[in-house]
């Protein structure tokens, strides 16, 4: 038999790759373990959670925990879930709009002092939020808007240094001639942004929106400070206060945490590909 007629076998996997994958699986397992623990605890009762030896699968599966989570008087889970959706969604929209405009200006337009202003904007990144927190808090108090979502959302209408920085990278990749062509076609500057530049960077914009959603969904400090009523809390604060007050009810806490985490997991799975593309291209530039 000639060698030409025997099919080539793919190169055998070396011991190295096996070790590599084993190590990666182990690390992934370590990261996933708390998540798994949370999930199974949501379907156990307290005794089962603390039973030794550990049961790795709930038996029986206590679906009633979920029903209870949605119906408790002292834990308005659904209302708080809605608050979180509103909070994260509004911040994401505000960020996408304001940061996109600012980044377009920094990345595509030419004006005096542009790079200086951009430098100052990036400097804002280095300033810890906690430093400006007190004066900002007092300001909102004076306006009588504490206890509402205004202090939590409005600031994002004026941009966010990190997202501006990230989006600018993408806008800089838009060819200048494209905008010039639109200028010659008689489009206004705002329309050029909206109809010509934005469609070139929309993947980046979706990623920025997702970042903003995830960030806001998990944001704890600001809503804790500004909001007072249980019915106004987003889930992050709601879960915390429930857990602080009802320390014994682990399964309800865990069920709440599970449902708080689930939307982010689903969102990530849906947009996974986009995410990886976006991260890769932003780091390459």
């Amino acid at each position: 038999m000639t060698t030409a007629s025997t099919r080539r076998m793919p190169p055998r996997k070396s011991v190295q790759t096996v070790i590599y994958h084993a190590a990666m699986l182990l690390i992934a397992g370590i990261f996933l373990l708390p998540f798994y623990w949370m999930t199974i605890s949501a379907f156990k009762n307290n005794a089962e959670i603390f039973a030794r030896p550990v049961t790795w699968f709930p038996d029986p599966i206590r679906w009633s925990n979920i029903a209870e989570l949605f119906n408790r008087d002292d834990f308005p889970f659904l209302i708080q879930f809605g608050n979180s959706v509103f909070y994260a969604g509004s911040v994401a929209l505000a960020v996408c709009f304001s940061c996109s405009l600012a980044a377009y200006s920094f990345g595509c337009l030419r004006w005096r002092w542009r790079d200086l202003v951009f430098g100052l904007t990036v400097c804002a990144l280095l300033l810890p939020g906690i430093v400006t927190f007190l004066p900002v808090y007092l300001g909102w108090s004076r306006l009588g808007l504490n206890g509402t979502y205004w202090p939590l959302i409005t600031p994002f209408l004026f941009g966010d240094a990190f997202f501006i920085f990230m989006l600018r990278q993408f806008y800089m990749g838009v060819p200048r001639e494209l905008l010039d062509a639109a200028r010659l076609d008689g489009a206004s500057e705002f329309r050029i942004w909206w109809q010509i530049a934005l469609p070139q960077v929309w993947t980046a914009l979706v990623i920025v929106g997702l970042f903003a959603v995830v960030y806001t969904w998990n944001e704890f400090f600001s809503p804790l400070i500004y909001l007072q009523d249980r019915e106004d809390f987003p889930l992050s604060v709601g879960l915390f206060t429930f857990q602080a007050n009802r320390a014994r009810e682990w399964s309800i806490s865990m069920a709440g945490a599970l449902f708080a985490a689930l939307p982010m997991v689903v969102l990530f799975l849906l947009t996974q590909r986009l995410f990886r593309q976006g991260l890769a291209s932003s780091s390459l530039k």
Partner: peptide
């Protein structure tokens, strides 16, 4: 005068067609 009001049209080296 603004570019669009000069009665000129331009063809660019990299074509600059709107990709979307």
């Amino acid at each position: 005068l603004a570019p669009a009001r000069r009665g000129v049209a331009m063809v660019f080296q990299n074509y600059a067609l709107y990709p979307h």
